[in-house]
Design a protein around this nucleic acid. Structure first.
Lengths: 143, 143
DNA sequence: AAAGATTGACTAATCAATCTTG
DNA sequence: CAAGATTGATTAGTCAATCTTT
C-alpha cells in the first residue's frame, strides 16, 4: 500500500498548500477555481454534466457547485437551446477574471514544487495510463 | 497544470474505486480503514495527534474520527499515562479484524491497477521526493 | 425507460473558540 | 504562553427521491 498511501498523502497536501496560497493572496479557493476552469474550457457548451464528469463529483454536488458560482456572481445559467432538461453555464467577466488570476497563482506555485517540466510530463503520462486501468479493473468485478 | 489535474483526478477516482470495492464486499469504508491502519501501526502509542498528522486532517476532524471509531466499537480511548491532556487510542479485536480484512481487499484491488511492483515503487519514491518540496516552497512565501 | 438536473436528509470535513495540562 | 484535545457553527460532499424532457 506504499504507493497508494503516498499518492493520497501527496495529493492531499499539495491540494491544501495550493489552497492556502490562493486564499492567502486573495483569490478564490481551489475547488472554485477548478470549476471555473472547466466551465471556461468548454466555452459556451458547459453543462452540469461536464462539471460532474471532469471534477469526479456527483451530479448533485455539481448542481450545488453551480448554485454557488451563480450566487458569487461568477457564472450564469441560461436555457439549453436544444434540450429543455439542461442549462448552459457560462462565466461572467468576474468569473473569467477570477479564473485567470487564480490559475496564474496556482500554476506558479505548482511549478515551484515540480520544477522539472519533463518529470511533470512523465508523471502525468504515467498517471493517465493507470487511470484507464481503474475502469477496466472495476468492471471486471461486475462480470 | 496537466500534472496537477491528472494527479487530482487519478487520486479521486482511485479512492472512489477502492471505496466502492470495500463497501461492495461488506468491509468498512476507506476513510475508516485508513484510520484503523494508523492506530494499529502505532501499537499502543496512537494519539489523536498521530491521526491528524498522518491522515493530513485537522485535530478537530481527527477527534471526531476517533469518536466514530469508538461508537462503531472498533477502538477505545484510555488516559495517557504520562500526559493528562491526551488519550491513547487502541483497536478492539473488532477493529483489528476490520483492518485486516479491509486492507487485504484494498491491497488486492490496488495491485490489479498497478501490477508492476517496480513501477509502484518508483512512483511512490517520486511522489515522496516531491512531498518534501511542498513544505519548503510553502515556507519560502512566509519569509 | 434513460438522461439531465434539482432538492432534502445525512455525513464528514474546516475553522475558531474553549478547556486543561505541560 | 504552547500543546493536546474537544465542541459548535459552517461548508460541501454523498445518496436517494423526484421532476421534466428525450
Amino acid at each position: 500500500m506504499d504507493f497508494f498511501d503516498q499518492l493520497v498523502r501527496f495529493e492531499t497536501e499539495l491540494w491544501n498548500a495550493v489552497e492556502r496560497r490562493l486564499i492567502g493572496s486573495g483569490h478564490v479557493g481551489l475547488a472554485t477555481l477548478q470549476a471555473l476552469r472547466v466551465v471556461d474550457r468548454h466555452g459556451d457548451s458547459a453543462r452540469v454534466h461536464e462539471l460532474s464528469h471532469e471534477l469526479s463529483i456527483t451530479m448533485g454536488a455539481a448542481s450545488k457547485l453551480v448554485d454557488r458560482l451563480e450566487r458569487g456572481g461568477m457564472a450564469v445559467r441560461r436555457p439549453h437551446p436544444d434540450d429543455r432538461r439542461s442549462s448552459l453555464i457560462s462565466l461572467t467577466p468576474a468569473g473569467r477574471s477570477a479564473r485567470r488570476s487564480g490559475e496564474q497563482t496556482a500554476h506558479r506555485f505548482i511549478a515551484q514544487i515540480i520544477d522539472d517540466r519533463d518529470e511533470a510530463r512523465d508523471l502525468a503520462a504515467a498517471l493517465s495510463r493507470l487511470q484507464t486501468r481503474i475502469t477496466r479493473v472495476s468492471e471486471e468485478a461486475d462480470a
